[in-house]
Amino acid sequence: MGPKTTKLLRLLLLAAAILLPFVSNNYWLDVATLALFYVVLGQGLNIVVGFAGLLDLGYAAFFAVGAYTTGILMTVYGWSFWLTLPVAALLAAGFGVVIGAPTLRLRSDYLAIVTLGFGEIIRILAINLSITGSASGIYGIPRPAIGGYPFSSQKDFYFLMLIIACLVIAAVSRLGRSRIGRAWAYIREDEDAAEAMGIDRVRMKLLAYSIGAIIGSLAGCVFAVKMSAIAPLSFSFMQSIMILLAVVLGGLGSISGVALGAVLVIALPEMLRSAEEWRYLIFGAALILMMIYRPQGLWPAGQEQAADEREAAGDGAKSVPM
């Protein structure tokens, strides 16, 4: 795919996303909004798993931290939604450092186990603490407003999530192609060599983990006000796995791939709804076939990068005399 086609394709997708609420019914708009949540969560996890190569099996925990922070601050203390965002981001980054600092020194496999445990701890805490509303969760979370305009309809939240998703995609793709993003790639490729080249691996991994945590928690904040009720069930291990699935299915480290993966993970089971109880079986079989025939993902990072580079460096030919 040439750089111009890629650019055009992206513009077309954005146009389709903007027009969707005007042609879709509420049911599919709700599915699309959920898909956008997954796009954001997928990009956050993509930094951790795709860029830095750290396996995180408890990513939904950060989603929960954001949702509960907003839920509690708004219902108990009457805070404005927008003020809960920085608090949630700080809390998530704090949790990220607390979990990461002792474990990121270890190899990736240990991190996977610790993050799995962390995800469960957060969920079980939410079930048992009274401030998080125990098993029934928090309800009656107020709607946010901006300049006197309250977000209330499906459409409002869809557009809010679309804007957030675009901002997150832009930020993550710029990070990926910066000095920081390259440092993550070096660590993913060969930790010891990266360290020998002057890259502090523990610090850089911690950075990846914390930025991923912040993105996850911000998605959680919006999730809380969109649903207006949250319960521990939304932050289960399966949730973590579905987000990871979006990343792996789309293509580790590929921005476009992860966005595509997120949409598919949400949309496919819905489309298969007519197949009744067979739908998850079909979905599962499709995934297995995918992993056999296209393990690098639907839209692998290499292809995406090649297209971006051709776009960026029209002079790329000069260094290759052939």
Partner: peptide
Amino acid sequence: SGMHSRTRQGVWGAI
């Protein structure tokens, strides 16, 4: 990769 330790640009600058 060799230039990593000779440069400073962080998350903010990248975004």
